[in-house]
């Protein structure tokens, strides 16, 4: 993945200083913006996975907050223009030394590239597949019912198992039952297991 960092700060000195530090230490693409509106105009062209370093007064603006809300691939580090220092990884202080800044940016990238393992929210399609698995249908039958290829069914099943940490068909059936994905009022559950 090509790492992208966008810096939003009113001060040209801060922008370029941060860019310089990052360029020297991290292999990444850096773009500089003075304010959020400048950034927002071009945001569609910037990809959907990146890190923004943003001055704290802009971070707290409602327009920035609503921009960031639905963008899961975007991570944020805030920049605080005061003479304090901290240990938090999500904040850069202007008086942080270069090593600290590099470290904070690296930590943010590490968290971004982690696969979303253990994230147990299934997509609607995955729930469709899970229901049919729970009801005992074979991959081929599931593919026909959902008008998708068997290959896609298998890949959904793999993702479901990875997300839930449940491997066996009976285990998946139990998950479907306790989450009310299937109506069990007319079925004997132990027959499904």
């Amino acid at each position: 993945m090509n790492k992208k960092v966008y810096i939003l700060h009113r001060s040209a000195v801060v922008q370029n200083g941060l860019a310089e530090i990052l360029h020297h230490n991290i292999n990444c693409e850096v773009k500089l913006f003075e304010s959020f509106p400048d950034f927002e105009i071009v945001s569609e062209t910037l990809g959907d996975k990146y890190l923004v370093l943003v001055e704290d007064n802009q971070l707290n603006s409602s327009s920035f907050k609503s921009f960031i809300r639905n963008r899961n691939g975007v991570s944020v580090i805030k920049i605080i223009n005061s003479f304090t220092q901290s240990t938090g990884n999500d904040t850069i202080y202007l008086y942080d030394n270069a090593g600290e800044i590099v470290n904070k940016v690296n930590v943010a990238f590490e968290q971004m590239t982690k696969p979303e393992k253990g994230e147990d929210t299934l997509s609607t399609r995955e729930i469709d597949v899970l229901k049919l698995v729970a009801l005992g249908y074979a991959n081929k039958e599931i593919a026909d019912k959902l008008h998708i290829s068997t290959h896609t069914v298998i890949s959904h099943r793999k993702n479901i198992t990875e997300k839930l940490g449940i491997k066996s068909v009976s285990g998946l059936t139990v998950y479907a039952v306790i989450n009310n994905f299937i109506d069990t009022s007319n079925i004997n559950i132990s027959d499904l297991l």
Binding site: G165, I166, K167, S168, S170, G171, Y175
Partner: peptide, 18 residues
């Protein structure tokens, strides 16, 4: 093999979902 994965599923279901 399959017997082993069920015991793991049982742990998972109780710890995470019940």
């Amino acid at each position: 093999s399959d017997v082993d994965s069920k015991i793991n599923d049982l742990k998972n279901l109780i710890i995470k979902y019940i």
